[in-house]
Amino acid sequence: MAAAGYSDLTLPRIIYKGGNDNARPDGLRSLLSQVARRTSIEVNREPVALKLSDPNLFKYPFIYLGGDEAFEPFADSNLKTLRKYLSYGGFLFIDDNSAKSDSGFDHSVRRMVKRLFPQTPLRNIPRDHSVFRSFYLLNTVSGRAIIKSYMEGISVKGRTVLIYSANDQAGAWSRNKLGDWNYDVMAGGYRQRQLSIRLGINIILYALTLDYKKDMVHLPIILERLRRYQSP
């Protein structure tokens, strides 16, 4: 395997104090594996974990923040760095791995986001957002456990810089090295897991192409497929 390039896609995990920042150790690697298999994107599968204070943070425009417990609030300086990171074009995906509603992780995330963007609350991401059509055409929000039927996000100057899922996406993505799934999906089975993988790929494609799929050249075909896809 060729050595990963500087511009190849890397998904660093954010390290924080308190809680469990690595609740799904195989999640990101498994997703990258799917990205490499299904798309033309070149990926770097080496696991990378960073603190927000790490100067290498600005080498990776996509970061993942996951966990299943409450965590300690970030220092103001770290939040300032994160704010700058997002305004320069970075993207943050937050994933609640607890598979519980009203979890400690959820409280910590909402507290953090409120400090990060005091004037901009988390909002539900509408179904016509590019994240639902950046590669796969999706009309549902999946995950290992469907805690919420929607994702939330924050947009700055028309670009969504942060997406938060409460449905343990990484849990659905995780496979061990033998290829077996690490966690059972709750209620949905194979289709639900596949939709979660598709959503993960779409989130990455959105970060890499933004609103590309809303360009006029794509619209007629996409709208026609969506019409067929959504009709019973």
């Binding site: 298999r37 299904r38 798309t39 033309s40 059509r133 950046s134 590669f135 796969y136 055409l137 596949q194 598709r198 494609l205 799929k213 794509h218 996409i222 497929r225 067929r228 896809y229």
Partner: peptide
């Protein structure tokens, strides 16, 4: 170019954008 000829998208074309 979102997929190459060798990529396996694991979905029918109708479910792709």
């Amino acid at each position: 170019i979102l997929r190459n000829l060798g990529d396996d998208v694991a979905a029918p074309t109708s479910e792709l954008s």
